[in-house]
């Protein structure tokens, strides 16, 4: 993995600071139901649990102004034409090994859909049967510091991925 973010809770679940390789790079701030990701140089992204008009579990949308930067729906997100799965099971790894501890972001190389809205009921229901190479590793509770390690292909949205990973899975 080429980059390592650490997201550490500072107050309520929506309040945290984000470190990149031990250097503070951003913070999360929550006001009412709106979480904002603010970088050290003042850039802001709005993070919402509402995706395609409705609140869904394991779903989150990150917007920079009006532009969507990252859309996670039911643990799945698409980046540069490829689908990725949060909480994925790396190909060839025994399931019992990942029942506890570290979790993974897997790239779904042969995923048979091009867009979120095309994914049928059956595929969503059986998404944990999908496997792929691990391109991200997630570990740790937010209170202690939630670590997000990513491969190069996710580096450009690494800040947003680490913020969402913390907010969805480890804020507590």
């Amino acid at each position: 993995m080429v980059v390592e973010y650490t997201v550490k809770r500072t107050g309520g679940p929506g309040e945290a600071v984000i470190f990149l390789n031990d250097r503070e790079v951003a913070k999360l701030s929550k006001e009412d139901d709106q979480v904002t990701l603010i970088s050290r140089d003042g850039e802001r992204w709005n993070i919402s649990r509402r995706v395609e008009g409705e609140l869904r579990p394991f779903s989150m949308q990150v917007k920079h102004g009006e532009k969507s930067v990252l859309t996670i729906k039911d643990n799945l997100f698409k980046h540069k034409g490829k689908f990725y799965l949060f909480m994925g099971i790396p190909e060839g790894k025994p399931m019992r090994e990942i029942l506890l501890g570290r979790r993974f972001i897997c790239r779904l190389d042969n995923f048979p859909f091009n867009e979120h809205h095309e994914i049928d009921h059956e595929t969503r229901s059986r998404i944990r049967r999908f496997r792929g190479p691990a391109v991200g590793e997630l570990d740790g509770l937010g209170k202690a510091g939630h670590k997000v390690k990513l491969e190069d292909e996710l580096k450009d949205i690494g800040l947003q991925i680490s913020a969402c990973s913390y907010l969805i899975y480890s804020a507590g």
Partner: peptide, 17 residues
């Protein structure tokens, strides 16, 4: 533990959901 409540429990990060 297979993608449901105990899998999601934040204490799973410490190995004890």
């Amino acid at each position: 533990l297979m993608g449901l409540c105990e899998d999601a429990c934040v204490l799973r990060w410490q190995g004890e959901p």
